[in-house]
Write a protein that binds this DNA or RNA. Structure first.
Lengths: 155, 155
DNA sequence: TATTGTTATACTCTATAACTATA
DNA sequence: TATAGTTATAGAGTATAACAATA
């Protein structure tokens, strides 16, 4: 974690807040990585399954676009997911260049488990928060997200 | 981004909140990756530089412990950072098995740039927030972090 | 001519295991 | 005997470029 607070500069509550946001991101990432590993998935492969669950059988080209990675990368991800039984490849009915990727039963079960895990995590993080605290958090979060999107757009 | 809200389950404000937290983490990660790439750094290498900046010349063993990776991984990271001029290796003064890694001027300059980037980001995210919104966000963030740490401890 | 997905190649991060040089 | 860091090896994610099959 890139914690910035040190003796080099005057401490800033803004920087301290960013540090805690970054800590949250790191902890969340580790938690999700651990959960997925228990099901035999990496984050990249899980992401592909997730896209598949929401978009139904897709060509690899469509998956590459949805995931924001190259066609070559999708080949590798699908290879791995097919070898471990999460997806299957089948020919596209009308375009003989293309391949359709679809979830197996095992893949669908894993996606359902991922959804349950996320719902459970949301519960653990938020369910017992005082409503005012939860609402304040969400309000601030939305404002921060908006500013972050603006900053990225400017860059 | 693993956005969970779909037609499969009753929409939940808790899940929606987690989705936005996850969106924030993804956008922050992409933003930082882009900034670091502009300086010729990956996140792993930047993390090592950051540890070095805060801990002064360190053995690779100490770096491996601080980063939570294997000794082999540190060898690779230091190889890359040395080849690109961010760090140098030198013999440990008293333990001839060990190697000290230290920042070059270029490495120190890069760490300073990283610190500036983070401070700038904190400004962009928080500086123009109404104080009450900022405080509500931080209060909620602290509560969420606490619950996340508890959840991880239980697991 | 353009597109889909592959092979070829390469770089990075990560790990374990075996080994060398030292403690 | 234990530790620091290396080589050897391997798997995963990522990319570009060249290529085959098909549109």
């Amino acid at each position: 974690m890139l914690t910035i607070v040190d003796g080099d500069a005057a401490p800033s509550s803004l920087i301290a807040a960013l540090d805690r946001v970054l800590e949250l991101t790191v902890l969340l990432h580790d938690d999700m990585t651990t959960s997925l590993a228990a099901e035999g998935l990496t984050t990249s492969r899980a992401h592909l399954l997730w896209v598949l669950h929401h978009g139904r059988p897709s060509t690899q080209r469509a998956l590459a676009d949805a995931l924001g990675v190259s066609a070559r990368t999708v080949t590798g991800l699908v290879d791995g997911l097919a070898a471990t039984g999460f997806v299957t490849r089948s020919p596209h009915p009308t375009d003989r260049r293309a391949t359709l990727v679809q979830l197996t039963d095992h893949g669908a079960t894993s996606v359902a488990a991922m959804a349950r895990d996320q719902a459970g995590l949301a519960d653990q993080l938020f369910a017992d928060l005082p409503p005012a605290v939860f609402e304040g958090f969400v309000e601030g979060l939305d404002a921060v997200l908006e500013r972050l999107r603006e900053a990225i757009d400017r860059a």
